[in-house]
């Protein structure tokens, strides 16, 4: 199967945007990936070996966290696994709206 590597992790995967592995489960695929590219491990997993909270793993278009067998889900050679760090944010600070808009230093923008 093919594992797609997101932009920020490519430097730790030999610069590759995709890596082929021959595992039978999602866990096996991630194990093989991090065996081949050990520097990836700390970016994907906590010290306790769990996927970091902001790292999403999709088997084709399905979030692995919501599959019945989660990381133990079987995979086939034609499947793809996408590693997608989460993307979020906003102007709020701790859920509170900050001060109203104020003028900025024109030199800070374009």
């Amino acid at each position: 199967m093919t594992i797609f590597i997101p932009t920020p992790l490519r430097p730790y995967a030999g610069g590759k945007d995709a890596v082929n592995v021959s595992a039978g489960t999602v866990n096996g695929a991630l194990d093989e990936l991090t065996r081949n590219f050990p520097d990836l491990r700390k970016h994907l997993f906590t010290g306790e070996g769990k996927l970091r909270a902001f790292v999403n793993v999709y088997l084709n278009d399905e979030d692995v966290r919501y599959l019945p067998q989660k990381e133990s889900t079987p995979v086939s050679p034609s499947d793809t696994l996408s590693i997608i760090p989460s993307i979020a944010g906003g102007s709020a600070t701790h859920g509170e709206r900050k001060n109203a808009f104020r003028c900025e230093n024109p030199s800070s923008g374009v």
Partner: peptide
């Protein structure tokens, strides 16, 4: 919030 949730 932008910083805390930036991972790329």
């Amino acid at each position: 919030t932008d910083f805390a949730e930036a991972h790329w």
